[in-house]
Amino acid sequence: MPDLGVRASVCARGGRKDLTMPGAIMFEFPDLFFTGLFLTVQLSVLGSIGALAAGTLIALFRISPIPPLRWVGVAYVEFFRNTPLLVQLFFLFLGLGALGFRFWTTDTFESIFRAGAAGMALYHGAYVAEVIRGGLLGVDKGQIEAARSLGLSYVQTLRYVQLPQTFRATIPPLGNIGIALIKNTSLASTIGVAELLQAAEIVESRTFRTEEAFGAVVLLYLVLTIPASLGVNWLERRLLVAR
């Protein structure tokens, strides 16, 4: 991508000679780029924790012996997976905002940020739920019977027998969802979170140095996502060997 951008700029501007190092522009606008990076990381971390919590809860609903809980679980998963994250973010920020709900804060920036983090958690939680449900159902039925025959309750069996095994088996797919989440934090720019993409857009509009601004952000995203996918691949291989 950065290469493509640089070549295009040469063409568009009739051969500019003074090309800077890719990414150098970051240090001209450190407050925008690095604050953006920090917000992206914050959104990713909070979003992942939220998605894991929401997803686990919904997965438990999905396999619950109580039918209404199961219905809630299915409705949640299907609704959040089959509507765009962007619409969900607008709904959380503008829609709930119209009701006067500002995520328990009066600070506008904080409220936007929280709407963004909530959107990340709710949307990715639906995918996490399906992965964890698969993991829970993957635990051998005999083990569940063994646990119940020892007198462990339904909840204790979930807690001590099924969930611990599930988390191990689901680390690779959960990692993939995490990577998608990092990339999807860029959508928070549309409701006004000054994360990485927003930083690029601001710098672009101030300087018209499009390739440099976007090139820098491309680099920063790669710095986040490439190690993450290498990590997921590594874990996947290790877990395959361990089994």
Partner: peptide
Amino acid sequence: FQQFNLFPH
């Protein structure tokens, strides 16, 4: 049980 059903973790 026939299949032992120990908890593998």
